[in-house]
Design a binder for these strands. Structure first.
Lengths: 137, 137
DNA sequence: ACCAAGAAGACAAACTTAGTCTGAAAAGGA
DNA sequence: TCCTTTTCAGACTAAGTTTGTCTTCTTGGT
């Protein structure tokens, strides 16, 4: 039950972007070096963030990646969702899933509560909080 | 970021055991039928629960599985730990892991908070709660 | 036109998960 | 003691996921 490495990369990418003034274009190669992420894999990750609307990219010389949402509006939950899809602690908690006894399934209910607690916390934490170190314990 | 199917099986096994009087031996074959779990795989799962001290088993004719801890003392967190090992939302949150800049790693800190919130909720929820349906949202 | 970036998708290696198979060991009864 | 029932243990396998790489294409600026 872990986030994937790619999700961790995504968080680091956003942190790196948030260190520069909002909207500034940063070439992905530079991000890769700063955060020690394999170049090609980083690009795929940026694309997921881009499709989620968190960043935008520009091609060509002087191209790169930039935030389209301010860092204090991007939560950890947003990043996880962008990379891994909707948070689901169990298959039966995925949107669109259905099973015969879903209505009165106690396992589903109990895991749903845990998931809600996790999600609530993840939605409190923004990229800006991470960068600014606002999480003193 | 999901619990494994095996963990879900484990929860169901414990629920099934908790339906009978405490300490009663239930043959694993019966549990498999009741909860629709592949027989061999269930046995492996029972073994993990047994090594974690949550159940004990008896071989031979009239053998089976029984709870060794009362259902209201077994939390969802216990089950996940028994099957998957210590809860870790990210590799760097696993016990025994170390990386150079672990002390001031903001990613680690933020995920640590989320993990603590999740763990707290999981530790509130017992198998007895599930069986008795005490979770009416 | 040329070059520096990102876009896209095929591919592959490594790992994890879910499950099976086979044989052994133990408990109890005949 | 022998037989049956049941768990124990480990090897094995098939499928899926993760984490990348490689190659080719497209775009934008100079």
């Amino acid at each position: 039950m872990q986030i994937t490495r790619q999700t961790e990369y995504a968080i680091k990418i956003l942190i790196e972007l948030a260190k520069s003034p909002f909207g500034e274009l940063i070439p992905s190669k530079l991000i890769a070096e700063q955060q020690d992420i394999p170049g090609m894999f980083l690009q795929k990750t940026v694309q997921l963030l881009s499709r989620a609307g968190l960043v935008s990219t520009q091609r060509g010389i002087q191209g790169g990646v930039r935030l389209t949402v301010s860092a204090d509006k991007i939560t950890t939950a947003d990043v996880i969702t962008a990379i891994e899809g909707p948070l689901a602690l169990n298959l039966c908690l995925s949107p669109g899933y259905s099973c015969p006894n879903m209505a009165d399934c106690q396992v589903r209910r109990i895991l749903g509560r845990a998931q809600a607690a996790l999600l609530h916390e993840l939605q409190q934490e923004s990229i800006a909080d991470i960068v600014e170190g606002k999480l003193a314990k």
